[in-house]
Write a protein that binds this DNA or RNA. Structure first.
Length: 306
DNA sequence: CCAGACGTTGTT
DNA sequence: GTCTGG
DNA sequence: CCAGACGTTGTT
DNA sequence: GTCTGG
C-alpha cells in the first residue's frame, strides 16, 4: 500500500514539522522543483523528503520511484521500479542492499495517506462464486492519519471538517537511491495494524515517536539492520474516514479530496448493482455520521482517538 | 564457479 | 488481461 | 495507488 | 548488469 498520500502543509509548516529550514543543494532537476501543498501525491511524482546530510537534517526533493535491477529491457520498455519496500524482507533483497548499507534512509512527511478498501469489509464476505464482487472503481478510498486526541480537542466529537481532525504529521520510513538528476525513493511497508486490517493488509511504516524518527534519520549511528527492525513496530495511533473517489484520479487536487465522503443517493460512483448488493446493509458513513458518530465505522474512528 | 533471480501490490 | 503514466 | 490505453502504415 | 544461493 501506500500508493497515494497528502502533504499539504505550507512551506513554513513543513519546515517546522521537519525541524529544519535547510534544503539540500539542488541538483539539475531539483532546481526546477518548487514546493507546493498537495492532496494527491502519486507515484512518479516529486516531493520533499527529510534526510540527514553531515549530521544535519535537510529537505530534499525526490522522485517516488525506486529503480531496481531487472531483466534487460527492450526498446520502449521502461526500467522496473518499486514504490514500496517490504520492511520484513528488505535486508535480504539485493536491490535494496546497497542503499541500506549506504544509509540512504529518509522520511516522507505527510498529513495522511490513502488506502482503497479491499473488496469486502468484515462481515461482507460474499460467496458470489467466480464473479468478481467489486470493480476497481467501486473500491472506497480512505484517508488515514494521526487524529486529534480527546485531550487536545474538546470538540473532537463534532469536528467541522476534515482539517479540524488532522493535526499531527505522519512520518513514513523511506529508502532512496542517489541519481544524477534527482534522487528516487520508495516507502517501507509493514503489516496493517489490526484496526485497518479490514480495509487493507499493508500500510506504510510509520515512525511514531521522536525517538523512532531520530533513529531512522541517524544513518551514522544506527545501522540499517536496527533501523529497519524498529520500523516494524505496530502503529496504532491512526484514525481514518472515507473520502470521495475523486482522489482516485491523479488529475484531481485540492482540499476537497480529504473531506469525508458524502453519500450521493442514486449516484454511487462505480458501484455496480452486484457489489452494491454484496455490500448489503453496510453503508458508507456520511458527513452526518461525523457529527454524530453512531455507526460502527465511526466508533472505530473515534475509539482510535483515545 | 554458474544459474537464476532481480519488486510490490492485490486477488483468486 | 496487463502495462504505462501520473 | 488508479485510470486509461492497448497500433501500424504511409503521407502530409 | 550484478547479486545470491548452491
Amino acid at each position: 500500500m501506500c500508493g497515494r498520500f497528502a502533504l499539504y502543509y505550507s512551506r513554513e509548516q513543513l519546515e517546522r514539522v521537519a525541524g529544519t529550514t535547510r534544503w539540500a543543494d539542488a541538483k539539475d532537476q531539483e532546481k526546477r522543483y518548487h514546493y507546493q501543498p498537495r492532496y494527491n501525491v502519486a507515484p512518479q511524482q516529486t516531493v520533499p523528503l527529510l534526510r540527514t546530510v553531515s549530521g544535519e537534517r535537510v529537505l530534499q526533493p525526490m522522485r517516488w520511484a525506486f529503480p531496481i535491477r531487472g531483466r534487460t529491457f527492450g526498446k520502449g520498455e521502461s526500467p522496473p521500479i518499486v514504490i514500496n519496500v517490504r520492511a520484513e524482507t528488505a535486508l535480504e533483497k539485493a536491490s535494496f542492499r546497497s542503499a541500506l548499507d549506504a544509509g540512504q534512509r529518509a522520511v516522507v512527511i505527510a498529513n495522511g495517506f490513502y488506502e482503497w478498501s479491499a473488496a469486502d469489509a468484515p462481515g461482507e464476505q460474499q460467496d458470489v462464486g467466480k464473479i468478481k464482487t467489486m470493480t476497481k472503481a467501486s473500491r472506497i478510498p480512505y484517508f488515514i492519519y494521526h487524529g486529534v486526541t480527546k485531550r487536545e480537542s474538546k470538540d473532537h466529537l463534532a469536528p467541522r471538517n476534515a482539517h479540524d481532525m488532522i493535526d499531527r504529521p505522519l512520518f513514513m520510513a523511506a529508502l532512496f537511491v542517489e541519481e544524477t538528476e534527482m534522487n528516487r525513493f520508495a516507502i517501507f511497508t509493514v503489516a496493517a495494524s489490526d484496526k485497518i486490517q479490514w480495509m487493507h493488509n499493508r500500510m506504510p511504516a510509520l515512525l511514531e515517536t521522536e525517538d523512532q524518527l531520530q533513529a531512522w534519520l541517524d544513518v551514522e549511528q544506527v545501522p540499517a539492520r536496527v533501523a529497519v527492525h524498529r520500523c516494524l513496530q505496530p502503529t496504532e495511533q491512526i484514525v481514518w474516514h472515507p473520502v470521495s473517489n475523486t482522489v482516485s484520479s491523479v488529475k484531481n487536487e485540492g482540499p476537497s479530496l480529504i473531506e469525508p465522503r458524502r453519500d450521493e443517493p442514486g449516484k454511487k460512483p462505480g458501484l455496480d448493482i452486484r457489489s452494491a448488493f454484496a455490500r448489503g446493509l453496510k453503508r458508507s458513513p456520511s458527513a452526518q455520521d461525523l457529527q454524530a458518530p453512531e455507526t460502527k465505522q465511526m466508533r472505530h474512528t473515534y475509539q482510535a482517538n483515545r
